[in-house]
Computed example of a mutant assay.
Amino acid sequence: MIKKTLYFGNPVYLSLKNGQLVIRLPEVVKSSTLPERFKQMSEITKPIEDIGVVVLDNKQITITSGVLEALLENNCAVITCDSKSMPVGLMLPLYGNTTQNERFRHQLGASLPLMKQLWQQTIKAKIENQAVVLRECAGEEIKCMKVWAADVKSGDPDNLEARAAAYYWKNLFKIEGFTRDREGIPPNNLLNYGYAILRAVVARGLVTSGLLPTLGIHHHNRYNAYCLADDIMEPYRPYVDRLVYDMFKEEGLNCSELTKEQKARLLTIPILETVISGKRSPLMVAVGQTTASLYKCFSGELRKIFYPEM
């Protein structure tokens, strides 16, 4: 089942009733002139079990602890945004799998050679997907990208990821002065927003598979709580890039500030179509297959992560 992404950009009351998320507008709730029957009819309810991601993008949102508890118990990722409407916080459940202790031990016991091999597979998949985006969107020559993908060694000691990234960004968005930088010119803002949504989806998938999203196979920043999510999302980034490329091509300089329409398109990332293990699948479902295969690599059942192919 495809989980839904809910975005709240206006003041709203979120409460829990009979296991359902109840959505109410403050103006309706506070009104003394509207009849009670009308107030009840204005309530919108959503089944908690159908929700995968919730984005809170307004300082006047009121959410009860009961809602947060129910969302987290159902492995939902809750994203909060800052004053610039950019994702700034992520809340995930403490446990998401019945055999979590055993899975943690397998993850913590993974050998260094295995970690390097998993990173090799990750970077190879990322560069291959980048090459497809570059060919489809910019019509660029990708022979060098194919060579770099094939040449990635265990642990990527030659840092072919960075070499491919430099070529990729130089040729994808042919904008004067553009470099891929969080604080850079548009469409960096679109990419930042999209990657934040993707990161939440991947982190949620890792928790659901009983893994620690903090302990990465390559990223080891002591201040980063989602190192493993940042690792595993790498081959999925090109899906965000392709969506952002289409948006920027259509809107150009109008992307300097994110609009509600642009956010709405970026919030479709969890349902973008992917191909994984030869089958078409929504991105969120594909991420679940990836994280499940990652655990099997840690437990010794598999030697390869399942990543999508563009």
Rank of each mutant, 00 (worst) to 15 (best):
L21S: 03
F173T: 01
I63Y: 02
K124H: 12
I127H: 06
Q120H: 11
A162G: 13
S65H: 07
K153G: 06
M1D: 15
L294V: 02
I44S: 10
L272N: 08
Y307W: 03
A150E: 14
I61K: 06
N171E: 13
F298A: 05
I79Y: 06
F173C: 03
L72F: 11
G252F: 05
E136R: 00
L191M: 13
V29T: 06
Y226M: 12
K170F: 05
I63K: 03
W148A: 11
A292F: 00
R303D: 14
L272Y: 11
V78D: 00
T208E: 01
L6K: 04
Y195F: 14
P26K: 08
P157L: 02
E69S: 12
M284H: 12
G155F: 12
T259C: 07
G216V: 09
K146V: 03
R204A: 02
R163H: 11
F38N: 04
L198G: 10
M41I: 03
L16W: 10
T122W: 07
Y193E: 05
Q107C: 05
F298V: 02
V285I: 13
Y168H: 03
Y223W: 11
G19K: 11
Y168S: 01
E309I: 09
L160V: 09
L302G: 01
L108A: 15
T268G: 01
